[in-house]
């Protein structure tokens, strides 16, 4: 599990990889939140292209970042979800709050 960041203009992109579960989500959450606080972007993109497994902890992770971003007036996008990640994300209903983009 690794978290990489790219900041350009007022957009922060987070590249997630590996497995997202209860065990790994704590470090991912802390990494994203400290970068969010530092940069205070107006757009947050969470890129899932290299995530191989995700359970409902990942849904909680996205939900929590959405709430944090809302405080800054920052929009959240979830992009490049593999099919398996999209399946759980869709069933969670998060799609009604957050924009999902395939490409």
């Amino acid at each position: 599990m690794q978290v990489l960041f790219k900041a350009e203009k007022d957009m922060l992109t987070v590249f997630l990889s590996g497995d997202i579960d209860h065990h790994t989500s704590k470090n991912i959450r802390e990494a994203i939140d400290s970068e969010l606080q530092r940069i205070m972007p107006s757009v947050l993109k969470l890129d899932f292209r290299d995530v191989h497994f995700m359970d409902s902890s990942g849904v909680g992770l996205v939900m929590g970042r959405y709430k944090t971003a809302l405080v800054y007036g920052c929009e959240v996008y979830v992009v490049h979800m593999p099919d398996t990640v999209e399946k759980i994300m869709r069933m969670s209903g998060l799609g009604s709050l957050i924009t999902f983009e395939r490409d």
């Binding site: 989500s25 959450r29 359970d55 409902s56 902890s57 849904v59 909680g60 992770l61 939900m63 929590g64 759980i88 069933m91 969670s92």
Partner: peptide
């Protein structure tokens, strides 16, 4: 608490 989605059993069922 925070960041737990409350979806565990729903996901297991689904």
């Amino acid at each position: 608490g925070d960041d737990r989605s409350g979806l565990g059993f729903s996901v297991m069922e689904c």
